[in-house]
Simulated assay, not measured.
Amino acid sequence: MIKKMCLAVLAIGIFATACSNDDGNAPTTATLTLNLDGLEALGSDYVYEGWIIVDGAPVSTGTFSSVSFPQSFIVDASQLQDATTFVLSIEPAIDPDPAPAATKLLAGDFSGNSASVNSNGIVADFSSASGTYILATPTDMDDTNEASGVWFLDNSSGSPVAGLNLPTLQAGWKYEGWTVLNGTPISTGTFTDAGMADDNATSSPFKGSTGNGPGYPGEDYLQNAPSGFTFPTDLRGATIVISVEPSPDNNESPFTLKPLAHMVPNDAMTHTAIAMGSGPVSIISGTVNR
């Protein structure tokens, strides 16, 4: 009898150990796959970083620089299963802050094992964006080069008003105007409020010497031309673009979000309001699967 009891106890112990081993073999990691459309490479000082929101707190899923998709990341299985939302941010490549930066680009809630993510709710919704500009060079006294400047204002009523109808951006983003001359984008300056002068209104290297221009975003291309160009120039035939840029931004080229654009007509008149059209990219989107 004692021998049988010992064997029974031993059997129970083996069974308990087997159950424990089975539990210990449960996977502790899982795969998160990103398939995003429209991202462009960042400057060398910045990377993209994914985050899952677990119990209201962000958990990093890893950083990446390549914009070729799909891309997969190994994350904690239980955290991934409990995640409610995915967020993509832009972070410094060397980042001492473990929290997400203000520059968040994509977000979306999980439904089952996938999340549809886009930039509309976390950057801004550009579906109603519109714009008007004029050709003029108000920062000098020479009236022979008026086609060498672009200003985002509307003077069709006889008095200038803001020419850009743009939504307020979330923290971490700024607007930037561009003139694309012979395939090369040249900035008109950054701004956050279309009803005010842009950030370099007083310090632009391109403007003339007799003033800072009207209190709206814009630029006169009158001096200090980049290599390969001659200022003053003629912007007719060039393309005017409004982009949305991460702030801070170390890339001298326009970011992928470009809600407004327009090719200046070859017969465009100076000091006359010209309407812009929709840009090539007003939303970035994709899917995230767990």
Rank of each mutant, 00 (worst) to 15 (best):
N113G: 14
G149M: 13
N165Y: 11
G172R: 06
Y175L: 10
G112H: 05
T137D: 08
F206A: 11
D154C: 05
P217I: 12
A194S: 15
A162N: 06
K207N: 14
A115C: 09
F191N: 11
K104H: 01
F229H: 11
G215H: 02
Q170G: 13
V123Q: 11
I134Q: 02
P98F: 06
D140G: 08
G218P: 02
T137L: 07
G218D: 04
L181W: 07
D199P: 04
I134Y: 05
W178T: 09
A194Q: 12
N113L: 13
G158H: 12
Q170C: 05
P167M: 15
G213M: 08
T210F: 15
G189N: 06
Q223I: 15
T139S: 12
D109M: 06
G131V: 12
A136N: 14
N120Y: 07
P217L: 06
K104Q: 15
D193W: 09
P214N: 05
P205T: 06
M141I: 05
P226V: 05
A101G: 12
N155I: 14
P96F: 01
T139L: 00
P100C: 00
P226L: 01
V123K: 03
A136G: 06
G108A: 08
A225M: 08
L169F: 00
P185A: 07
T202D: 07
G218I: 03
G208V: 01
T132P: 00
D140Q: 06
K104W: 02
P217Y: 05
S157F: 05
S130N: 10
P98Y: 04
P167S: 15
P185R: 04
D199W: 07
G149S: 12
A171W: 01
T188L: 14
F191W: 14
G183W: 01
P226E: 06
F110E: 00
A162F: 04
S204H: 09
T132M: 08
T139Y: 00
N182D: 13
Y216C: 10
A225W: 02
Q223H: 11
I186Q: 07
T132I: 13
A99H: 05
I134K: 05
A107D: 03
D97F: 05
K207M: 07
S159P: 03
S209D: 14
P226F: 02
L135C: 00
D198H: 13
G158C: 11
S114L: 05
P214L: 01
A107K: 11
F126N: 07
D142F: 09
A102Y: 11
D140F: 00
L169D: 00
S157H: 03
S114F: 12
A171P: 13
A197Y: 08
P226T: 04
D140E: 11
T168A: 14
G195D: 10
G112T: 10
G189V: 13
S227A: 15
P160H: 07
P226R: 01
S156G: 04
A101C: 06
N145Q: 03
I122N: 07
V180K: 13
P100I: 04
A129P: 04
S187D: 01
T179E: 07
I134M: 02
A225C: 02
P167I: 07
S157A: 15
A129K: 03
D154G: 06
N145I: 14
G121H: 08
E219A: 09
S116I: 10
G163C: 09
S119Q: 12
A162D: 03
S157T: 15
V150I: 15
W173P: 09
F191R: 10
